[in-house]
Design a protein around this nucleic acid. Structure first.
Lengths: 329, 329
DNA sequence: TTGTAAGCGTTATCAC
DNA sequence: GTGATAACGCTTACAA
């Protein structure tokens, strides 16, 4: 390109970068040719010089979870809008794979990392270590122990709203199906559950609080079967994910329990499934797409700030109550 | 690293790359230190020299479709196994966005591209053009007009199997709900439908063949409502996707039609939804994960072959009949 | 067996 | 206002 115009590479480079010390006419000549030949600067050369790749890495436990894919959509679109490329890796909920992915990404010279931590990740040293080298923003599955920017939905308030809705339906013996692993999501939803009950003057009875490993439909089903086998009497179910709520509904229906006449049920997520199960599942809509968007926004902010201060802040996005047939009176 | 060991950079480089002309002892010294300091070559330097990035780009219409995410999972895992990074972009089914994504990826110096074409992509010139520069493998949504490697499931055989199953259930007036847009998926599934009917000596009646735009649950619902409004008499429904089959089931249930007593229904995909709808949906399981795996395999093959021959071949992966309640007699 | 030097494409510094 | 030059980190002829 420089040769064609009989200019030095530096003049061309400066024109392209809009430096002020270039004559208008030459600058225009360069810009024009650049456009004509659809010139795109070589990213290796550029990267070698500037140490920036214009790419961010994402680590997520499982891409096939609909909610994860929704967040990813927000990430991809938002990154594209800012000219960033997105490299995606999966941890499969495994601690080692998460570490590997982290290393690979750092090694790929991504400018920043978006991380949703694996259930198994008991230790967080690898994250703390890495955050000294590279901006990291956590989203969805986070840990309060890590002093970084975190983008999540307002789990506690959401759970509170969900349980309050069941209470409004006249329910008082409300089962919570939560995740066994003490993730911050799980803790916060438990807190919301407890808060709503307490506010209504209902004592928290641990026999109503049930745990399961993977929060799958199958898990919800077996938790409910156990509950029924134990002849626990309840009139409401709050599934901390739509999946467990759906599994619970399937088990109750099989056992002749009428929903919502005998038991009101609400989930958490507003997954597609919630409008397919019968009765349609009331639920809390999670702002997945926006979590992705904000995650990118704050990450890019931290990338460009280029400061060494790792900001410890939590951004909570609103959930929304969606009432369907599983909880109406 | 070179300095620490008092060696030249070239000696170090050669040791790392395992060149034969390096003394065993120095080589080992280098390898040892490399391991100790967890040395990772700079990708810009390397890329600038070798023009390889060890990354592949993926363009997919919509990441939130469960089946797409499943393919993506196969792609990511398979790429990781070969040391490749995966850059993902979405076309949102738009032709222009697909073109943009293509350019961005090529511009990012990815070593190859995996493409699932957008519904809107009427013209294919951008793909043909690009395939001169860079290896491209098509998957899932492909076009027979493009002479490249294509990884798909055996839509025609799968559809044939599905319809044959309905025939085996004693059904003869079988509705097909297919995609309006003449993608090769849609065409092949239609062909399978026609083949099974013809083989059974049933004439193809176009009033049974219905089309819709986006193959959503809502689409399936309205197609079925139209069918019922027209008082078309049928006893079987083959939804070319699970979604339309589910929508059709919902519409039929609402109109008091008993499934599978009055009408047998089968879908295509084996999405999670198919076990939530009642009755559970019979369907053809698609090999999403493997499509992803094979797509990477063949792409890497073409990348390493480095030949200019763009191979025109189609790899078909098997679908599998899954019988559930929506079609049993 | 090891080292030297050139070059990949870009940008920043400094001299003209 | 423009251009020469060095440098980023790596690989590879070629020289020693």
């Amino acid at each position: 390109m420089a040769e064609i115009l009989n200019l030095s590479t530096s003049t061309v480079s400066k024109s392209l970068l809009g430096h002020s010390d270039i004559g208008e006419s030459t600058k225009n000549r360069v810009l024009e040719l650049a456009k004509k030949m659809n010139y795109q600067p070589n990213l290796f050369g550029k990267g070698l010089r500037t140490q920036k790749t214009m790419s961010i890495g994402v680590i997520i436990p499982d891409i096939t979870i609909h909610y994860s894919a929704l967040i990813l959509k927000g990430i991809i679109e938002s990154a594209k809008g800012s000219g960033y490329r997105v490299i995606i890796s999966e941890s499969g909920h495994h601690h080692e794979d998460e570490k590997d992915a982290m290393n690979t990404l750092i090694n790929s010279n991504v400018d920043g990392i978006l991380l949703s931590i694996a259930r198994e990740s008991s230790t967080i040293d690898h994250i703390l270590d890495a955050s000294n080298f590279i901006p990291i923003v956590l989203f969805d599955k986070v840990s309060t122990k890590i002093p970084l920017t975190k983008i999540i939905d307002d789990d506690e308030f959401g759970a509170d709203t969900a349980v309050q809705h069941l209470i409004d339906c006249g329910r008082t013996r409300i089962v919570l199906i939560r995740e066994k692993c003490k993730t911050s999501n799980s803790e916060n939803r438990y807190r919301g559950y407890a808060r709503a009950l307490t506010r209504a003057g209902i004592a928290i009875d641990e026999k109503f609080v049930r745990e399961c490993d993977s929060m799958s439909i199958e898990d919800g089903y077996s938790v409910m079967e156990a509950l029924l086998a134990e002849k626990v009497e309840f009139d409401g179910v709050f599934g901390a994910t739509d999946n467990v709520a759906i599994g619970a509904i399937q088990a109750m229906k099989k056992n002749g329990i009428n929903i919502p006449k005998d038991v009101s049920v609400i989930g958490f997520s507003n997954s597609k499934n919630s409008t397919i199960i019968e009765p349609n599942l009331s639920t809390m809509e999670q702002p997945g797409y926006n979590i992705g968007k904000y995650a990118v926004k704050y990450l890019l902010e931290e990338i460009s700030e280029d400061s060494d201060i790792s900001t410890n802040r939590t951004i909570e996005l609103k959930t929304k109550l969606i009432i369907r047939d599983s909880s109406s009176l």
